[in-house]
Simulated assay, not measured.
Amino acid sequence: MTPEFRDPVIRTAPQPSDCNSNGDIFGGWVLSQMDIAGGIMAARQVKGRAVTVAVEAMTFHQPIKVGDIVSIYGEIERVGRTSVAVKLTTIVARKLDSEEIKVTEGTYVFVAIDDEGRPRVIE
């Protein structure tokens, strides 16, 4: 599967320490990687600090395995007065296979904040 996106926001490889008791990569690890990618996109969009306030409609399609190359792609879904929603899709390439598989997708919502941590209007 070829992603319909251009370049990944981040690309990484999970380690054995990131596994759950079933031997797959722990879902929380995936969520945190997606949060990092979404935070990068949100900060660029709001031209400053942004914090995660919600995760909407998260779907796990396939497990991630140790040795997979994990790529997280994002697109700005909507921009409000103080918030921005980022649609994130996680694609993996299995260890020795070039086929790409969509494993998770969801929308993260971030709020732009000022230096005191209060919401601020996005300019």
Score class of each variant (00 low, 15 high):
residue 64 I to L: 06
residue 65 K to Q: 13
residue 32 S to P: 04
residue 115 D to I: 00
residue 41 M to C: 11
residue 5 F to A: 13
residue 13 A to Q: 15
residue 63 P to G: 06
residue 94 R to N: 14
residue 102 K to R: 10
residue 3 P to Y: 13
residue 123 E to C: 03
residue 24 D to W: 13
residue 62 Q to F: 10
residue 13 A to R: 15
residue 100 E to I: 03
residue 22 N to K: 12
residue 11 R to H: 06
residue 46 V to Q: 01
residue 16 P to M: 09
residue 13 A to M: 15
residue 57 A to S: 10
residue 111 V to W: 08
residue 41 M to E: 12
residue 18 D to Y: 11
residue 46 V to Y: 07
residue 28 G to Y: 14
residue 36 I to K: 07
residue 74 G to P: 06
residue 100 E to N: 04
residue 16 P to T: 05
residue 105 E to Q: 11
residue 11 R to W: 01
residue 100 E to H: 11
residue 74 G to R: 05
residue 112 A to F: 08
residue 121 V to H: 01
residue 102 K to Q: 13
residue 51 V to G: 04
residue 95 K to Y: 00
residue 91 I to N: 02
residue 22 N to W: 12
residue 91 I to K: 00
residue 111 V to C: 11
residue 60 F to N: 06
residue 103 V to H: 00
residue 38 G to L: 02
residue 48 G to S: 12
residue 97 D to C: 10
residue 87 K to N: 15
residue 100 E to G: 07
residue 65 K to L: 12
residue 39 G to V: 14
residue 72 I to M: 07
residue 116 E to A: 10
residue 6 R to M: 04
residue 69 I to M: 10
residue 32 S to T: 08
residue 95 K to R: 09
residue 17 S to I: 06
residue 120 R to F: 04
residue 114 D to Y: 05
residue 32 S to R: 14
residue 16 P to I: 11
residue 12 T to P: 02
residue 50 A to M: 10
residue 61 H to M: 00
residue 79 V to D: 01
residue 12 T to D: 11
residue 42 A to L: 08
residue 106 G to A: 08
residue 119 P to Q: 09
residue 73 Y to W: 03
residue 72 I to E: 04
residue 56 E to A: 12
residue 58 M to N: 07
residue 27 G to A: 12
residue 110 F to V: 09
residue 113 I to A: 07
residue 93 A to L: 05
residue 2 T to W: 11
residue 10 I to Y: 08
residue 92 V to F: 05
residue 117 G to W: 05
residue 99 E to I: 03
residue 22 N to I: 11
residue 15 Q to L: 15
residue 101 I to Y: 13
residue 58 M to C: 11
residue 37 A to C: 10
residue 19 C to F: 02
residue 25 I to T: 11
residue 43 A to G: 15
residue 17 S to A: 11
residue 3 P to A: 13
residue 104 T to L: 01
residue 62 Q to A: 15
residue 47 K to Y: 08
residue 95 K to E: 13
residue 35 D to N: 14
residue 12 T to H: 02
residue 9 V to R: 02
residue 24 D to M: 10
residue 47 K to L: 09
residue 34 M to T: 09
residue 76 I to F: 01
residue 49 R to A: 06
residue 115 D to P: 00
residue 65 K to M: 13
residue 19 C to E: 06
residue 3 P to C: 15
residue 82 T to W: 02
residue 42 A to Y: 03
residue 92 V to E: 00
residue 44 R to V: 10
residue 28 G to W: 15
residue 48 G to Y: 11
residue 61 H to P: 02
residue 5 F to R: 08
residue 3 P to K: 13
residue 70 V to E: 03
residue 121 V to N: 09
residue 68 D to M: 01
residue 106 G to R: 01
residue 95 K to H: 08
residue 83 S to F: 09
residue 77 E to S: 14
residue 49 R to H: 00
residue 48 G to F: 13
residue 88 L to R: 04
residue 98 S to T: 12
residue 66 V to L: 05
residue 59 T to L: 10
residue 26 F to C: 04
residue 63 P to D: 08
residue 26 F to V: 03
residue 98 S to W: 00
residue 69 I to L: 12
residue 26 F to K: 05
residue 66 V to Y: 08
residue 94 R to C: 01
residue 89 T to E: 07
residue 88 L to C: 04
residue 97 D to M: 06
residue 40 I to F: 04
residue 55 V to A: 14
residue 110 F to H: 11
